[in-house]
Nucleic acid binder design. Sequence first.
DNA 1: GAAGTCCATGAAATCGATTTCGTCAAGGAG
DNA 2: CTCCTTGACGAAATCGATTTCATGGACTTC
Lengths: 333, 333
Amino acid sequence: MDNRGLWKTRVVTIYEVAARAGVSASTVSRVLNGAKVSAESERLVRAAAEALAFTPNRTARRLRGHSSAVIGLIIPDIENPFFTALARGVENRARAAGYSVVLCNTDEDPDREATYLDIAVAEHMAGVILAPADDASDVSRLVAHSRPVVAVDRSLARADVDAVTVDNRAGGRSAAESLFAAGYRRVACITGPSSVETAQLRMAGWRQAASRHTGSAYVEELLRYADYRVEGGRQAMAELLELPDPPDAAVVANNLMAAGALDALDDVGLAPPAFGLAVFGDLPFASFGRRGIRVVDVPARELGEAAAALLLDRIGGDASPARTVVLRALEQR
Amino acid sequence: MDNRGLWKTRVVTIYEVAARAGVSASTVSRVLNGAKVSAESERLVRAAAEALAFTPNRTARRLRGHSSAVIGLIIPDIENPFFTALARGVENRARAAGYSVVLCNTDEDPDREATYLDIAVAEHMAGVILAPADDASDVSRLVAHSRPVVAVDRSLARADVDAVTVDNRAGGRSAAESLFAAGYRRVACITGPSSVETAQLRMAGWRQAASRHTGSAYVEELLRYADYRVEGGRQAMAELLELPDPPDAAVVANNLMAAGALDALDDVGLAPPAFGLAVFGDLPFASFGRRGIRVVDVPARELGEAAAALLLDRIGGDASPARTVVLRALEQR
DNA sequence: GAAGTCCATGAAATCGATTTCGTCAAGGAG
DNA sequence: CTCCTTGACGAAATCGATTTCATGGACTTC
């Protein structure tokens, strides 16, 4: 049947090192793990290990009951700078504690996510930080194996696990309010997929502010659901601009869609601040073009750091009830 | 000493499944691996496995001699869209062949790179695709364990391994030539660290064109080495603009530095096409601001796909001599 | 009905490092 | 000089799944 992974290789074992050093395997193991051995044995073992280019086989080591010093970080879109910044935060914290981080990209696909979650269990990773693809993500496998999990960015409705999120509703409200305060009259909203929690909350914040200023009747026509991607943002903005009574400003729920929206604006000769724009998350590599854009600072790196800190606690044995950490996300400029 | 990874967990073993199903462990294993068993046994085993939420322990499975269906992708900067696009390419190809991909970020740090290479060996990954942090990257561990490695973006001087690169020199030349052809007279160059191959080659291409048009004497003062990051690009461009006889155009060796350079230009009220700019690699999320910029298309995704294809060949047992695939990189617009 | 096949299945060996347990010798106390 | 402690270290069990090998029963075949 399937013959993947048959790359059998000749590896140097601890027994060969032991033989060459003239000691037992136990002694080699002790040297490797810093247990008490005579200086002479230690010297012999190290010399033999060096000579044979011996690398202990982690697979075997782990089988004896330990988990690896690797943390899995599962994100929905590796090409989104928000998630890479988050990854950076996780890495900083994890590395400081001696853990390595491996990234898995699900492309917003629940199947891929499930695969990676299985891998995390099967590989005995020390823990997993998950930015869920959608709100149906199933972490029961992890939980069943009592492996620590922390949800980040979006929370997991189904499961009772730690989570780190930002205050999306307040962010949305503050973004909209700041546009009204600056004098814009018709503030639209381009948000993400309706199945995604952050998209709903950011939109809800906007709606709260907008219905107060504009009157509820007009609000709905200024709302567009898109896909959190560049193309979706472009499309949504193009549609809004073709309304009989088009908006003069918009809250955009993530950075990628904002890039698309800016493109669409540019197509009709508009740009901030002539058209007001408030965006969730920084637009990387574009500081030159973003003058006049209001940015709701989504502290991606801090999110990652907080998630890693929580996870490390759990790995360390903390068994207290699940916590949710909410970071602030307020309009900045 | 170190008590990391002591998260001992209670796992359901194949023996418990066997006991519950009233068969032996061997039979359970056979069911799991599709070997011949009676329909009745199969039914019993599946029911028991289901009931106990049994997940086979990959660690144990692998110990028996197999490697995992996981490919490691080691990149120097996860926040650089070039590498994330490359990752996307690798993933596409790998997933199609049934492999999962885990990403490791070295932050251009050789130590971190070494750690991840060790992990790849120790975790018995099926193979590794490496975008080397610098030209001294040491893959001997992998080679010693005869685990397939493919270098991507930059080649490995020391080791005899497969590589996929782009024709950087030709790209640099073409970028510079196109600026001269458009009428710019003094074309500067902002390139990456001198220890990085791509930086040297891109610069070499520019130099070739520039010394022909400008005369060798003037070329060197228009060359700046930076760090492949935004801030470095900004700084380098700022310096160039303060020259007594400043350039009127520049070739910038990667996308991040270009963002910085655009910023620096903007600070003095310049922008393309008043100041000519040719950049290696796309500026993502900035299409609205990049009108007039010439882009040397570095086919990141294709690079990843080609690397994955090569690696999969090797994993499949191909033992032919090391190959180097060179993709084209020419000025586009 | 005896001899030979085939097949499902279980017992046990195996992968490589860790860890428990017991041994043996050196050193200290009485 | 004997008894006990202490410490280094080797033999063997262990982790969980795979795989080889042996066994016993069902089924053919002459």
